[in-house]
């Protein structure tokens, strides 16, 4: 029994056990990510993870990579600075639905519009976990949260559609039940040159599942298994989630578009002529 979990080499094991609740899917999402970087072409030293604040915000701190736990809502602009100063890096933003789409929503659409070469992994658990289960921009109508005690009345974001129409080159959705597919999606997304987005639906049993009578983490996982429909290339307009409805999973968008940095070098070379030295990062 002395054998070590092969994942440990990617984790800051001295920080275990993690702070996540029993039945939380975040650790599972981390496993998918580890699986994605295990056979990624990029050396691990060149991969950097940036998180915001919240339960998912803690992911960066558990991964044994150059990792940043930034301010609430701001991992994308932080990652933008990181990537632009060292374009050789693979920069992955790992954060939650509240962080990326409420307080950080503006940064998301602009990074997508610019086609900044970042991979955004959004763990969507439909709630603010760290602060006690408040409503988020992804909470379905009628779902209960601590700040919607009579049920949510606001239309949630359809995240893949938002990413798609903001300009992302890769858009996928999986649940943490779909571990292999999620890992594959993360790998593919990291290989894209441009703004890639993956939504990972994950259980928050403590604050969302319990309050909405879905049950514990395992029951929520079972619900993901039962309710999800895999349909690649579905039009993102048709993948909105509703309370207890079907969860359409798959790879919805995979297209080529010139990334911000490539565009920068192309356009500057046009303006400056043959004397322009392509920008490859801060020396």
């Amino acid at each position: 029994m002395s054998a070590k979990n092969p994942r440990n080499q990617y984790l800051r094991t001295e920080r275990m056990p993690n702070i996540w609740c029993p039945g939380c899917g975040l650790g599972t999402a981390v496993n998918c990510f580890i699986s994605a970087i295990e056979d990624c072409e990029t050396p691990l030293d060149q991969i950097s993870v940036v998180s915001g604040i919240g339960c998912t915000g803690r992911v960066a701190g558990y991964l044994k990579l150059d990792s940043f736990h930034t301010t609430h809502g701001r991992p994308i602009p932080f990652a933008t600075g990181l990537k632009l100063s060292n374009p050789k890096l693979k920069v992955v933003v790992f954060s939650g639905d509240g962080d990326l789409f409420a307080i950080g929503g503006n940064h998301f659409i602009h990074a997508a519009r610019r086609n900044m070469d970042l991979t955004i992994i959004c763990v969507n658990n439909f709630t603010y976990g760290m602060t006690g289960g408040q409503v988020t921009p992804t909470t379905p109508i009628d779902a209960f949260s601590s700040t919607t005690p009579y049920g949510n009345i606001e239309e949630p974001f359809n995240l893949p559609f938002l990413a798609d129409c903001s300009g992302a080159v890769y858009v996928a959705r999986w649940t943490v039940f779909h571990v292999r597919q999620a890992a594959r999606a993360m790998r593919e997304a990291m290989h894209k040159n441009g703004f890639s987005f993956i939504e990972i639906i994950s259980p928050c049993p403590t604050l969302y599942g319990r309050r909405n009578k879905i049950g514990d983490g395992l029951k929520m996982m079972q619900a993901f298994k039962d309710n999800s429909v895999i349909a690649d290339e579905t039009d993102t307009r048709n993948v909105a989630l509703d309370f207890r409805g079907k969860i359409i999973c798959g790879k919805f968008v995979d297209r080529e578009k010139t990334s911000f940095l490539d565009m920068y070098n192309i356009k500057m070379a046009e303006r400056f002529g043959p004397f322009y030295e392509p920008y490859e990062g801060i020396k």
Binding site: M16, N18, G27
Partner: peptide
């Protein structure tokens, strides 16, 4: 698969 699912990095199969 147990290792992939385990959110606490507490189990793995080989």
């Amino acid at each position: 698969l147990c290792g992939m699912y385990c959110p606490d990095f507490a189990i793995f199969g080989a």
